[in-house]
Amino acid sequence: MIPWVQLDSARTPDGAQELRLKRRGSEFSIMLGTNELMNSRLSGSEEALAKLSCGRIASHRQPRILIGGLGMGFTLRAALTELGNDAGIVVAELVPAVVAWARGPMAEIFGGCLNDPRVTIQEADVGQLIRSQPAAWDAILLDVDNGPEGIVHKSNDALYSLQGLSAARAALKPGGVLAVWSQGPDSGFSRRLKQADFTVEEVNTRANGRRGARHVIWIATRT
């Protein structure tokens, strides 16, 4: 068996933990301690995050999309496939090393999508972008952690609080969609979405098509 090789590492924004980029043959993995945050072989649920969201705003002209978390680019690439040439996508990534990995050792996985004229990459806190631009987005897609309970960066919790969800709703255009990826279910988060005055749909999906771990995507619509 081909062994894993660590290519690089980076501290999380609070400096408390370490992200590690590893490679085994053509397979990549990003680890946080003993937790695997993402793997290049498992893209199904991240792609579903984009497909479900873009499907809900298919009638919107010149849609603006905000993606929180670059990761391995699965959500970004799926969104580019779903959206027309009039769309604009901003990807907010808080860890500069993740952007460097996308342009460096993982460039083959990204397939040039970072150079698509519809795409803007901002090394920024997605929460700050949400709070600074009211009624600006047709869809906000959040995949910044393992779900509504942040493990990579505790400040991510603020995104999923009632106050954070209310800010996301204010940042959406009427009919806009907030979509959130999670490693598993969270009934408390579903309640908070409804308290923030969203219409909520909870979708179960797989990490890899019809196989792999079960993940959850919330589709919350500003009606």
Rank of each mutant, 00 (worst) to 15 (best):
R103M: 07
L21D: 04
E47Q: 15
G55D: 11
S9D: 14
N85Y: 08
E46Y: 02
A179P: 05
N115H: 13
G188P: 15
W4F: 00
E18F: 04
F189A: 05
D116H: 02
G88D: 14
V91C: 08
L178G: 02
G184C: 11
P3I: 07
G209T: 10
L52F: 13
A207S: 13
T205C: 15
I140S: 01
W101S: 00
L21N: 03
S45K: 08
A102W: 01
I217Q: 08
P13L: 01
I109G: 03
N85H: 10
V200Q: 02
T223C: 14
R11M: 12
R23G: 07
S161H: 00
A135E: 13
G212C: 11
D138W: 09
V177S: 11
L172T: 00
G209I: 07
T199K: 13
S166A: 11
A107M: 05
V95M: 09
P96S: 00
G33A: 03
H153R: 12
G176T: 05
L114Q: 12
T34S: 13
R131N: 12
R169G: 07
Y160S: 01
W218E: 00
R211W: 05
G147I: 06
D197F: 08
P96K: 02
L141C: 03
A168F: 06
N204A: 01
A58V: 05
S53L: 10
W137V: 05
Q62M: 12
T120W: 04
A78Q: 15
S161N: 08
W101C: 01
Q17P: 12
N204W: 04
A87G: 04
L141W: 05
L178S: 05
I2Y: 11
T205G: 11
C54Q: 14
R169Y: 02
M31D: 14
A179G: 12
L94V: 00
R222A: 12
V98H: 01
N35M: 14
G209D: 13
G44N: 12
V90C: 15
E27Q: 15
V152H: 08
W101T: 00
T120V: 15
I30F: 02
N39T: 06
F189W: 00
Q183F: 06
E201K: 15
P3E: 12
L66D: 04
V91T: 05
T221H: 03
G164W: 05
L193Q: 06
L66I: 06
S155N: 13
H60L: 14
R210M: 11
E202F: 02
R61K: 12
F189Y: 15
T34W: 06
Q133Y: 00
G73V: 03
I30V: 15
I151S: 00
G15A: 09
G164L: 05
A220I: 03
P13M: 06
R192W: 05
F28Q: 09
G127P: 00
Q122H: 13
L70K: 01
T34G: 03
S9M: 13
E27W: 07
V98L: 07
V90L: 15
M1V: 09
E149L: 15
L42M: 13
P105V: 10
T223R: 14
T75K: 11
I109Y: 06
R77I: 09
L32I: 01
R214D: 08
S187Y: 01
R222G: 02
V177D: 10
S53K: 11
S53N: 10
A139Y: 03
Q62G: 08
L42E: 13
L80P: 12
A50K: 10
H153L: 11
A58W: 04
P96L: 03
A170C: 09
N156A: 10
G71C: 10
A196N: 05
